[in-house]
């Protein structure tokens, strides 16, 4: 077990600690991916929108990782295999449709999950109750773009469908129970299929039919097994801090 799985006070890491790490890593990694769009988005409004969504996710990540330990150490000094995020969020930005498909799949999941957790007690519930309101805006943003691209030109429609199909196999992991996260995972999975399915159909696109996980894989992101692109993303995210420990501006 990695040193970074120790809770702040030492001792045996509990389920709450593992929960905060899993959800915190989801938010952190997606924030980093969305941040890559800054200065590159198709129009200025989208540059601003994706950066704002990234900022919300970074705020969630800071709160969650602080529940698990030192936020900076956790973000900048862990190795790839120590991250517990789902593989969906680490997928490369691709084209704008790929990013929107990833946003649709993830923000619907996050809104439903946070909505469930918000009714509970403790720091995780407090964060969920706060963040679910922001996530509603993220989901709305992804929905509007899915409709616009799906029901747009032949080219936007082709790309949106291809993006939805391509990322579909990463969606099964969203509903695998995480220790310490008191969620009803079956309700989450069926709720997610209903919401995502309705949006895709309204966009005049086809709900992907393939399996929601790869036929063969070495493991899941929650177990610390990640896809090829993740290492390169981490290298960019961590190199400044590792080269200049404690640097700030």
């Amino acid at each position: 077990m990695s040193a970074y799985e120790q809770p702040p006070g030492g001792g045996t890491p509990g389920p709450e600690h593992r929960a905060a790490l899993a959800l915190g890593d989801d938010a952190l990694v997606l924030a980093q991916r969305l941040g890559e769009w800054a200065g590159h988005a198709p129009v200025l409004e989208e540059d601003v929108a994706l950066s704002n969504i990234a900022l919300d996710l970074l705020g969630q990540a800071r709160t969650l990782l602080s529940l698990a330990g030192d936020e900076d150490e956790l973000a900048y000094l862990r190795e790839e295999r120590e991250f517990r995020n789902v593989q969906l969020v680490e997928q490369p930005n691709g084209d704008f449709a790929d990013t929107i498909a990833r946003q649709l799949y993830f923000s619907v999941h996050q809104e439903l999950l946070y909505g469930q957790l918000a009714g509970g007690r403790g720091e995780l519930a407090e964060l969920a109750a706060k963040a679910v309101k922001e996530t509603a805006y993220h989901r709305d943003h992804a929905e509007q773009w899915t409709l616009r691209l799906g029901d747009g030109t032949a080219e936007s429609r082709r790309r949106m469908q291809s993006a939805l199909d391509g990322l579909w196999r990463y969606t099964g992991e969203l509903f695998q129970p995480v220790e310490g996260v008191p969620a009803d995972w079956e309700a989450l999975a069926s709720g997610w299929r209903n919401v995502v399915g309705a949006v895709i159909e309204q966009a005049t696109l086809a709900v992907p039919e393939g399996p929601q996980s790869s036929a063969w894989s070495a493991g899941t992101g929650r177990q610390g097994v990640h896809t090829e692109a993740f290492g390169r993303m981490l290298a960019e995210m961590q190199h400044l801090h590792r080269s200049h420990p404690g640097a700030s501006w």
Partner: peptide, 13 residues
């Protein structure tokens, strides 16, 4: 509505 996100997270354009 032009954009759901504006110069800060709390504003829409």
């Amino acid at each position: 509505l032009l954009s759901r996100f504006s110069s800060t997270a709390c504003k829409a354009l």
